[in-house]
Simulated scan of single mutants.
Amino acid sequence: MTVALDKTIIYPDSDGQPMADNTKQFRWIVLIKENLDALFADNETVFVAGDLLWYPVEGRPDIRVAPDVLVAFSRPKGDRGSYRQWQEENVAPQVVFEILSPGNTTKEMSRKLLFYNHYGVEEYYIYDPDNNELTGLIRVDGELAPIENIESWVSPRLGIRFELTPSTLNIYDGQNNLFLSPLDLRKELTQERQRSEQEKTRAEKEKARANQEKARAERLATQLKALGIDPVE
């Protein structure tokens, strides 16, 4: 009796590695991923993901990588266990981000660069928050090449602008809005509410003062009329 072998290929949704090695790296991954999600919220054909395994070749589950953040244009939003390129009309993510931590080795990052270069990434950004260093590569003549002047660089695909200050990296959208963390956004919203409440209170006080002045003028006019004096004259 011959037993048929199960030839189903398994593409794991996890590589067993943590999303981040430390809180700083995690914070930057979330900052970029969530702000890109918000930036393209109204575009149903831009897919953004963080720490999602990307399988570029059907039948080869060993060929994979999990970018800290990936962006795939012309792909629908929605949940995925992994990004299996042959199920995505063979569209490779066009933009990827990697946030460095002390655990990243030169060998690992070289392997990722070769992977992204080979499988069609158009823009590749690497940020080291510990040393405040940003590296960018863009596809030129079929190869990823370093961006010589990354300061104030604007991503062709994303439309976002990078600004390195002496202490940190600032990222701005096309309307010059700074990428904010959920905590910073909450603080800004709280401050905006406080300013709105203060303006409302000021307006209410001004209205009350105007009403008092009007009532005073009406009383004065009534008193003058009682004395036979026309307040209009």
Results as ranks from 00 to 15, higher is better:
Gly142Asp: 04
Leu36Val: 08
Phe73His: 03
Asn104Val: 06
Ala145Pro: 00
Pro102Trp: 10
Arg193Phe: 05
Ser181Trp: 05
Val3Tyr: 08
Ala92Leu: 04
Phe162Glu: 14
Asn22Gly: 11
Arg64Cys: 02
Val48Asp: 14
Tyr55Met: 03
Asp68Gly: 01
Ser181Tyr: 01
Met109Trp: 11
Asn170Glu: 13
Pro93Ile: 13
Glu151Cys: 00
Asn177Ile: 03
Asp6Trp: 01
Pro102Met: 10
Tyr172Glu: 13
Pro166Ser: 10
Ser181Pro: 01
Thr168Ile: 04
Leu158Gly: 09
Glu163Gly: 02
Arg84Leu: 11
Gln94Cys: 11
Thr8Asn: 13
Ala66Arg: 14
Glu123Asn: 07
Arg216Tyr: 02
Glu213Gly: 10
Ala41Arg: 14
Lys7Val: 13
Lys207Gly: 01
Gly81Phe: 01
Gln175Phe: 09
Asn35Phe: 06
Ala20Pro: 15
Arg216Asp: 03
Thr135Arg: 12
Asp173Lys: 01
Gly142Val: 07
Ala72Glu: 08
Thr168Leu: 10
Glu34His: 12
Lys187Glu: 07
Asp42Glu: 13
Gln194Asp: 15
Ile138Gly: 07
Glu151His: 02
Ile99Met: 14
Gly120Gln: 02
Glu88Leu: 05
Lys77Thr: 04
Val140Pro: 15
Gln212Gly: 04
Tyr124Pro: 15
Ala210Trp: 02
Lys24Ile: 06
Pro67Lys: 00
Arg157Ser: 13
Thr135Glu: 15
Pro102Glu: 07
Arg84Ala: 05
Glu143Gly: 00
Leu39Lys: 12
Arg209Glu: 15
Pro56Cys: 06
Pro231Gly: 03
Ile171Cys: 09
Ile147Met: 05
Pro18Ala: 07
Glu188His: 09
Trp153Gly: 01
Gln194Lys: 00
Asp128Cys: 02
Leu164Val: 01
Phe162His: 05
Glu88Asp: 09
Glu206Asn: 09
Arg161Tyr: 00
Gly174Arg: 09
Ile229Gly: 08
Gln87Ser: 12
Gly78Asn: 08
Gly16Arg: 12
Phe47Ser: 15
Ile150Leu: 10
Arg195Met: 03
Gly159Arg: 00
Pro12Gly: 05
Val71Lys: 11
Gly103Met: 04
Ser155Lys: 00
Val30Cys: 10
Asn35His: 04
Glu192Ser: 15
Val57Arg: 05
Pro129Ile: 11
Val3Cys: 01
Asn170Arg: 12
Lys77Tyr: 06
Arg139Cys: 08
Ile138Val: 15
Glu122Gly: 01
Phe40Met: 14
Gly16Gln: 00
Gly16Asn: 04
Arg80Tyr: 04
Ala145Phe: 06
Asp42Ala: 09
Val154Met: 03
Glu108Gly: 12
Asn211Ala: 03
Lys112Val: 03
Leu169Ile: 09
Thr222Ile: 01
Glu133Phe: 10
Val232Leu: 10
Leu134Ser: 10
His118Arg: 15
Tyr83Ser: 13
Ala41Ser: 11
Lys207Ile: 13
Leu158Cys: 08
Trp54Phe: 08
Leu227Ile: 05
Ala20Thr: 07
Leu137Thr: 11
Ile126Glu: 07
